[in-house]
């Protein structure tokens, strides 16, 4: 069963084809990755999925619902959450408040409820707060919920961003370079965490990653983009051997050298 199906997705910026007929199927409860050199169109692809960009051609389905063309708030309500390559928390809000904002699609109380604080609103808010604390604990940030998020350490900010994305109870979680800027031990920690995330809450994860070690360690299926085109797809083992991938990363000369060495 496919959670996400992208068919023929093309996105152009002026004369530049940022994405050309990209096809992707994300299976339920999988961890899949998109890799590729800088400027390959990975983040553009994420932006197309989340409704931030509207692709010129092609269709994107969540389950069997067509989602391209929808605004990003509606896509989020349908069950896709994301994190950002450069952390984009609500910097001047506390950690808990960040998570509560992430819970937005599930909160029903309106403006009048907020002013009058009727029992229903209070109950709604209390439940939301408890859920936020639970998520906070889950990502290992207990006790830091009242910190202004910009004052949190880097690793904690990354985890908080994931926590905020989880608060939406998404079917599909998109992680844009979750280990960017981390040292090896932090990276290992994050990799373990992503694995646990899938195993424990049964969520489907699609991630963009630069660090090969992370990608190869946890993904079941890897899609490689280069200059907006899908050049390969397969299991980590297959991708490691694929000459076009090596070429894209290291250049033609190096690639032939490596294939010789491998042979």
């Amino acid at each position: 069963m496919a959670v996400l199906t992208a068919k023929n997705v093309t996105k152009r910026f002026g004369g530049l084809d940022a994405l050309q007929k990209v096809e992707l199927v994300v299976k339920e409860n999988a961890i899949q990755s998109i890799i590729g050199p800088n400027g390959a169109g990975k983040t553009t692809f994420f932006n197309c999925i989340t409704g931030f960009y509207n692709p010129e051609e092609g269709e994107i389905y969540l389950g069997d619902k067509l989602i391209n063309g929808l605004s990003s708030d509606r896509v989020t309500r349908l069950g896709i959450s994301r994190t950002y390559q450069n952390i984009r928390l609500f910097k001047n809000m506390t950690a808990v408040e960040n998570i509560l904002v992430g819970m937005h699609p599930h909160l029903k109380s309106g403006m009048l409820g907020g002013i009058l604080r009727d029992p229903r609103t209070n109950k709604d808010e209390e439940e939301a707060l408890n859920e936020a604390k639970r998520i906070l604990k889950y990502v290992g940030l207990s006790g830091q919920g009242d910190m202004i998020s910009k004052n949190l350490p880097y690793g904690a900010q990354r985890r908080l961003e994931i926590a905020r994305a989880l608060a939406n109870k998404p079917k599909l979680l998109l992680l844009d370079e979750p280990t960017a800027g981390m040292n090896p031990s932090e990276t290992q920690e994050m990799t373990n965490f992503i694995g646990q995330l899938r195993d424990s809450i049964g969520i489907t994860i699609l991630l963009i990653e630069h660090q090969m070690r992370v990608v190869m360690g946890i993904s079941e299926l890897i899609t490689v983009l280069d200059f907006g085109q899908k050049i390969a797809e397969g299991t980590p083992a297959e991708i490691q051997k694929n000459s076009r991938v090596i070429e894209a990363y290291l250049g033609r000369g190096a690639a032939s050298g490596i294939s010789e060495a491998l042979a």
Partner: peptide, 15 residues
Amino acid sequence: MALREDEDVAQAMGI
């Protein structure tokens, strides 16, 4: 407040 902090991300939170 989310809107004030980052409009795009606020929208991506379902707002």
